[in-house]
Design a protein around this nucleic acid. Structure first.
Lengths: 169, 169
DNA sequence: AAAAACTTTCAATAATTATTGAAAGTTTAA
DNA sequence: TTAAACTTTCAATAATTATTGAAAGTTTTT
């Protein structure tokens, strides 16, 4: 059975799901939904457009738009003759993934690497506990450095590189 | 300046940081901390050991240990002559990453792919909005399938494959 | 310089998520 | 079969995180 779908239904389903996915990855719902809405919109949207579409308050809209700008995935646009700001997001999914990886690397991987570097300095009686500590944190550290380097490479290379890599797998 | 560190200090720092990292990736603090504690412990630990070390309640400990078992990264161990259950986690970091990827794929990527497949069925007047909708969700869908396949490959292959891959980059 | 149009902030509140602890459930030993 | 040892559940509570909305701030226009 083939089931067609109305545009509005599809749009709502997408925005809703993007919000849920965001939540389970530690991104707040409103932020993820604003991003989804901008992804779908051919035109840049104003804060009011966003408030209206997602039924959220001005404060919430403003804060999360700024958040998306901080993540480097939304930008301002000024329209001639209009005083207010409009916002848009890039439609290139690969570029989006690149940017998100880059930011998460900076925000979450770097701090944990700092801790892992620090705790390499534990010393004391070489008992089982200390050995395990050194083994585990050392392994985790080298693994994390590897992943970090990989993300760095990924976030500095172009789409073509990525697709070639995928091909090899 | 070289700064050494006590075992206990290092351990606490690690457990604390692991909890924080977990939180920003949508994993609850207690769960992440229990995992960190087990990673460091040469011996399997009982629920009580965990309650004691992390200063958490029995209910909390129990629920989150079960959660970790559901994720496939902690297992039970029975000690001869002991009635209670002990818990341990694998110390192979690569194996851990594999398992976590596999689970997140199942829990989060699959559902979003289902939605992306569904919304491919939108129809209606072919205006700018609909075109953008089809473009964006279509791109996202094919990108997500690629990533999904990549994770699948990753989670089925061995450490060596992964390190060879890293080398190539 | 005053008003209008717009953006930002933030204390109060709501919603969500995590945690507790005691009671109920289960298994093993006496 | 009773008691003890242990595990699970879950309603109540606490902690955290998200959201609101109105006031304050800023920029532009008149």
């Amino acid at each position: 059975m083939f089931v067609s779908m109305e545009y509005t239904e599809g749009k709502n389903k997408f925005i809703q799901s993007w919000g849920t996915l965001g939540t389970s990855w530690g991104i707040n719902k409103a932020m993820a939904q604003i991003h989804a809405l901008l992804l779908l919109s051919p035109e840049a949207l104003s804060t009011e457009d966003i408030m209206e579409e997602l039924q959220i308050s001005r404060g919430n809209a403003n804060m999360n738009i700024r958040g998306l700008i901080d993540w480097g995935i939304v930008e301002k646009e000024y329209k001639p003759g209009e005083r207010k700001e409009f916002f848009k997001t890039g439609k290139d999914i690969w570029e989006l993934a690149r940017q998100v990886s880059k930011e998460r690397r900076k925000r979450e991987i770097e701090p944990i690497l700092k801790v892992l570097d620090q705790v390499q300095k534990v010393e004391g009686k070489e008992d089982a506990k200390l050995k395990e500590f050194k083994n585990v944190t050392g392994d985790l550290r080298s693994f994390t450095y590897k992943v970090d380097g990989m993300i760095d490479k990924f976030s500095k290379s172009d789409q073509n590189w990525f697709y070639k890599l995928l091909m090899k797998l």
